[in-house]
Write a protein that binds this DNA or RNA. Sequence first.
DNA 1: GGGGAGAGATGCCGC
DNA 2: GCGGCATTTCTCCCC
Lengths: 247, 247
Amino acid sequence: MRMHLSEYATLITDAMLRNETVVLGCTCSIRYSGRAESQLGRGDRIILIKSDKAILVHQPTGNAPINYMKPETSHSVVVEGNHLLLKSKNLALKEFLDVTIERIHFYNSHKLEDSQTIIVAGTEEDMSNMLYEHPDMIEDGFKPVSREEQTAYGFIDVFGTDKHGTLTIVECKRYCADLSAVTQLRRYIEKMMVSKGVSKIRGILAAPKITENAEQMLKDWGYEFKSIRPPKYLEAFDKKQAKLDFF
Amino acid sequence: MRMHLSEYATLITDAMLRNETVVLGCTCSIRYSGRAESQLGRGDRIILIKSDKAILVHQPTGNAPINYMKPETSHSVVVEGNHLLLKSKNLALKEFLDVTIERIHFYNSHKLEDSQTIIVAGTEEDMSNMLYEHPDMIEDGFKPVSREEQTAYGFIDVFGTDKHGTLTIVECKRYCADLSAVTQLRRYIEKMMVSKGVSKIRGILAAPKITENAEQMLKDWGYEFKSIRPPKYLEAFDKKQAKLDFF
DNA sequence: GGGGAGAGATGCCGC
DNA sequence: GCGGCATTTCTCCCC
């Protein structure tokens, strides 16, 4: 049983008023203007308008949305000739999305309730926590002083002294360390040398692996690489769970 | 008319066999294991399984998917007790997603056809192209060298010589330049000084604006900031269109 | 709200 | 496939 486009306009408008989440399968073309500008010719897509008024447009393949607007966007649906015009505006961000809908394949809307927050384990933070709790993983005699030390040039993952008492900065990466990881470490060290008034600070990049160019740059600057992997995910996970269950 | 969960299992399985895109509004809980590990308690979500077998799970608010798997993932749907178990596996990436579905609010599947590619304008590339065509926007007397040469020294946005013949590297940012933009410029300059065997290379950061810390670091290193905005979106857009229409 | 940095980042292009 | 880098990055945290 196919409805007319005008009926869909009413359906969608009413659903949004009721703060429902709207799903639309349709043939459409799209134009976006805001931080950048884009155009997309006619094709079949899924449109998702969430209860917070974020909108996502997905092509039938690919991970990322092809067009989207942030939450707090206002949407209007009107009939224009023989198609539906979905106009989304975010005046605060000066962003605009126009979707010209030629045909609707399916439509659904529903009030969705979800108060859950995701718990993620195996992050860089888990890694720096592990090193803080097991400083011997860096090297014998390493003594951590602080985590997440704030500097004007950024955060420092792990900060401490080696067995000779030399100040040591450890930068963690959960995956393969690259050039920017080295420049990040370098930036911290240079800033810290000035603020602490010392001439020598050791730099250690802790990651499962490192690119060849990054390793070369690391050596050129007299820093070191330490191959360390993020903590076993399930262990960290169960730990967090235990903590949550406690309360 | 509500169906039993077992009927949905068949519906979804068949739709995937026909390479359709599947949309599901449901109450579910989720567990992910792969590059990291995550858990999400019971709540209402939208599940999207695309024709390339990518899967996205969206909460009713927020821009980004809360869980997802890349294309080429295999999915199975089975009934387990009084709920539906959607198991997604990507053995090549060693990633796993388990969705325990307690209730289905709506379901749709459809064969979607979309061969269109998006055209985006106002990018950093557009910005560097603009500077090549209008080098006076950098400063009087700036002469960009041929664009072919930029590959020889990496991914430098724009480089050339100023009116005194001094080599000059320009790094473009389409939005507010930050600390990493400065270190990036610095890295290029150091690389270039070695490869060209010169002791002085000017560095210019071209962006609409720059953070205070980044500007300080830029000055500390003797580089310069030039406030430049990406080209007017519509103009660049129409240009690209004209080019495409030509063929 | 701005700044800084991580992300299960993703996606693109080049070698 | 790896590497380097932009992204309408998004998101979180902290000042």
